[in-house]
Amino acid sequence: MTAPAQVPAGARVILASHNAKKLRELQRILAAAVPGLEPEQVVSSAGIALPDVVEDAVTFEGNALLKARAAAAATGLLAVADDSGLAIDVLGGSPGIFSARWSGRHGDDEANNDLLLAQLGDVPDVHRAARFVCAAALVAPDGAEAVERGEMTGTLLRERRGEGGFGYDPLFLPEGETRSAAQLTPEEKDAISHRGKAFRAVAAHVARLLG
């Protein structure tokens, strides 16, 4: 039997991601939603020896579950994972689950944004509708599972705006906003974002399981 992965003392929830910005987002949301849960009790998988997960599902929900199941099995903790991306109407919903590696290099935000701008260069504003999609999965060590989905609708800008956020945020104008997702404060973004919606829905399951 494989020994459990070593996790920080006091941790109660693990986020199956090395993304520090994603971790802070989940910490803020869970701390507000789960009485008695401190931000430091929500940890990322950075520095923890988890098995490599091949994200070979063809949906956001499927990939989120793959990652959460692996983290729960390896650590014995409640595990949260998400799979998220950008779906553009005129591209038939792409880049979708391939958002992080749209340019061919995983996690290269600048290259991904550059490619998207080039692909949409001749597309008129009326056809630049898009949405961010997030599927957040929660898996407990006893096998209990829940998956929640959140979306943020908007349009694609013609140039980057703002220095905050990550991924495609500088190119995304949320519906009803005059600022890009990268120009919003973290709290403003949490309130309307796809990930904020999905994580808040998952937080209800975390609160129930932690009592």
Score class of each variant (00 low, 15 high):
residue 120 L to N: 11
residue 79 A to G: 15
residue 88 I to G: 13
residue 28 R to S: 13
residue 67 K to W: 01
residue 157 L to V: 11
residue 97 I to S: 13
residue 87 A to N: 13
residue 122 D to K: 06
residue 72 A to K: 08
residue 131 R to M: 10
residue 157 L to T: 09
residue 178 T to G: 07
residue 151 E to Y: 00
residue 97 I to R: 07
residue 137 A to I: 11
residue 47 G to T: 01
residue 24 R to P: 03
residue 56 D to L: 02
residue 152 M to Q: 11
residue 172 F to V: 11
residue 21 K to H: 14
residue 177 E to I: 00
residue 84 S to V: 13
residue 178 T to F: 01
residue 110 E to R: 15
residue 2 T to K: 06
residue 107 G to P: 06
residue 57 A to D: 06
residue 201 A to D: 13
residue 10 G to M: 07
residue 83 D to T: 10
residue 108 D to Y: 00
residue 129 A to R: 05
residue 29 I to D: 08
residue 122 D to L: 04
residue 120 L to M: 14
residue 19 N to G: 08
residue 28 R to W: 01
residue 73 A to M: 02
residue 47 G to C: 02
residue 83 D to H: 03
residue 160 R to W: 00
residue 71 A to E: 12
residue 115 L to F: 04
residue 56 D to E: 05
residue 58 V to Y: 00
residue 184 L to A: 14
residue 47 G to Q: 03
residue 184 L to T: 14
residue 167 G to F: 05
residue 33 A to S: 14
residue 73 A to Q: 09
residue 102 W to C: 09
residue 189 K to M: 09
residue 119 Q to L: 15
residue 125 D to S: 14
residue 9 A to M: 02
residue 46 A to I: 00
residue 105 R to F: 03
residue 51 P to V: 04
residue 190 D to F: 01
residue 77 L to K: 11
residue 101 R to F: 03
residue 41 Q to I: 06
residue 158 R to K: 09
residue 155 T to V: 09
residue 125 D to V: 10
residue 5 A to Q: 03
residue 196 G to M: 11
residue 123 V to C: 10
residue 196 G to Y: 04
residue 142 D to F: 01
residue 81 A to L: 13
residue 199 F to C: 13
residue 174 P to W: 00
residue 62 G to M: 03
residue 95 P to E: 14
residue 114 D to R: 15
residue 112 N to G: 15
residue 191 A to F: 00
residue 107 G to T: 12
residue 91 L to Y: 03
residue 35 P to L: 02
residue 193 S to I: 08
residue 121 G to V: 04
residue 34 V to T: 06
residue 31 A to P: 03
residue 196 G to F: 02
residue 55 E to D: 05
residue 123 V to W: 02
residue 160 R to N: 09
residue 74 A to T: 07
residue 82 D to W: 05
residue 100 A to N: 14
residue 93 G to V: 14
residue 74 A to N: 05
residue 29 I to C: 05
residue 54 V to P: 04
residue 83 D to E: 12
residue 197 K to P: 05
residue 125 D to W: 03
residue 113 N to I: 13
residue 62 G to I: 04
residue 208 R to Q: 14
residue 102 W to I: 09
residue 185 T to D: 12
residue 50 L to F: 00
residue 121 G to R: 05
residue 89 D to F: 01
residue 2 T to Y: 00
residue 70 A to W: 02
residue 122 D to E: 15
residue 2 T to C: 03
residue 127 H to K: 08
residue 109 D to W: 02
residue 63 N to L: 02
residue 73 A to T: 11
residue 96 G to I: 04
residue 77 L to Q: 13
residue 85 G to P: 08
residue 197 K to S: 12
residue 11 A to Y: 02
residue 185 T to Y: 04
residue 43 V to M: 07
residue 180 S to L: 10
residue 24 R to S: 12
residue 170 P to V: 08
residue 86 L to I: 07
residue 7 V to H: 02
residue 110 E to T: 07
residue 110 E to H: 08
residue 193 S to D: 14
residue 160 R to G: 10
residue 60 F to W: 00
residue 176 G to C: 01
residue 120 L to A: 12
residue 163 E to H: 11
residue 125 D to E: 15
residue 106 H to P: 05
residue 130 A to I: 04
residue 155 T to E: 11
residue 194 H to D: 12
residue 190 D to M: 02
residue 110 E to A: 15
residue 194 H to P: 06
residue 77 L to I: 09
residue 142 D to N: 14
residue 97 I to D: 13
residue 165 G to S: 12
residue 181 A to F: 05
residue 179 R to C: 10
residue 17 S to Q: 07
residue 4 P to D: 09
